[in-house]
Amino acid sequence: MDVFNAIIQTLDSTIRLSVPLLLACLAGLYSERAGIFDIGLEGKMLVGAFAGAAAASVFHSAFLGLGMAILISVAFAMIHGFASITHRGNQIVSGVAINFIAAGSTIILGQAWFQQGGRTPALQPGERFEAITLPGAEAIRDVPIIGPIYAELLSGHSILVYLAFLMVPFTWWVLFRTRFGLRLRAVGENPAAVDTAGISVAWLRYRALICTGILTGIAGAYLSMVQNGGFVKDMTAGKGYIALAALIFAKWKPVNAMFACLLFGFLDAASIRLQGSPLPIIGKVPAQFMQALPYILTVILLAGFIGKAIPPRAGGVPYVKER
């Protein structure tokens, strides 16, 4: 039963750890499917995390915090859009710039407003998103196997966790079942076809980036208001980049993205769990190696095990009418 509990606990933290990846990955999916590379997912998550925690702490409301996180993150997405859609700038440069601005401005503003070394004040109950207990969770907790799976694994997460996983079928539906999705995929493949069909390429891409901004905002809010009780500098710690890797790994498909993010989340959870405990055969492994494992595996997976990932064909190229 100990092993079973250990597995349940590891899977539980897998879910918790994959949520920010999943939200960021879906965010990237909207923009990359529309032909805009977005290396600035990291930065947008970071400003979202900061704005969410700061607003929640000042206004004493988790939902106001979430709203502010989305608002600021969308604003940063619009900066990316202004540079790379309206002014046809290099999307990578614009994304990197956003990451730098995010890293710097969150620390400076945090220090100026709260004087806690770049942190935001610790969030009080009511300012954070609390865990939700699903109906009947307590009643069946003691049922073997099913009980712990329901009560531990599925129940007891914050609303943002459920939202993140609901975004997977929703994104699939938007992309493949709606007019907006058809146009969004088309503009990432051949913007000229969209333009000649009488649709504005720029407005369509801006709308895709708004979707991206909303999702990175939620991802950031999750980091500072669910996983942590406040904002800490550089708290995204490369998750935006891992999300991009997961996106390639998932071949730009929503359901694949979920599994890719769960895999990365699992590696993360396993590395935390296994720190300091000896592995069979290998023996004791240095903690640093376990921490590095997800990243090492990312490189290996991306280098050779995913087959051919064909990105949206117009990705990264600003749209210019002929001539």
């Binding site: 493949f176 709606t178 007019r179 999705g181 995929r185 493949e189 051949n190 076809a193 969209v194 069909a197």
Partner: peptide, 23 residues
């Protein structure tokens, strides 16, 4: 001006969709 990995129908309706849902 076609989207290469779309079907014929998807290309034909692109920009002239009669409804917000594709079906």
């Amino acid at each position: 001006m076609l989207v290469d990995n779309f079907t014929v129908l998807e290309n034909v309706i692109l920009g002239a969709e009669s409804d917000a849902l594709l079906k």
